[in-house]
Design a protein around this nucleic acid. Structure first.
Length: 108
DNA sequence: GAATTGACGTTCT
DNA sequence: AAGAACGCCAATT
């Protein structure tokens, strides 16, 4: 049980993201105490495909679907978000702050 | 083995 | 205030 790796932590938090909610890499990184390592969060998501991590709920601080390119399709990520009630326009989440889900706050 | 890139964000100028 | 540079750590080339 030593999977306290940064990657595992990211997966844990990402899985706890509620339905119709979204979060940013920096938020997770900050929650883990490594706000500056936000890149690692994205890199960790690389293995999200092998995990049950809804990476489509994770976007950058602006709410832009920067990682949509890594999904199977090009509009898959956007489709998933819209399917949850999150409106997306121009690869950017509408009212991102409204759908924003901060683990440090919600999870405390 | 070394250099570069990468789902980002912060900090300095 | 706006823009540019840096830092993080791992993986890929």
């Amino acid at each position: 049980m030593k999977e306290d790796n940064f990657f595992e932590k990211v997966y844990q938090v990402a899985r706890q993201i509620p339905y119709g909610r979204v979060t940013s890499y920096g938020a997770i990184a900050k929650y883990l105490g490594t706000a500056r390592s936000a890149r690692m969060v994205g890199w960790a998501m690389n293995g999200s495909g092998a995990k049950d991590v809804p990476a489509h709920r994770v976007v950058n601080r602006v709410g832009m679907l920067t990682g949509k390119q890594h999904f199977d399709g090009t509009n898959l990520m956007q489709q998933l978000l819209e399917n949850e009630g999150v409106k997306v326009e121009d690869n950017q989440i509408v009212e991102f702050q409204k759908h924003f889900w901060d683990p440090a706050k919600e999870l405390s």
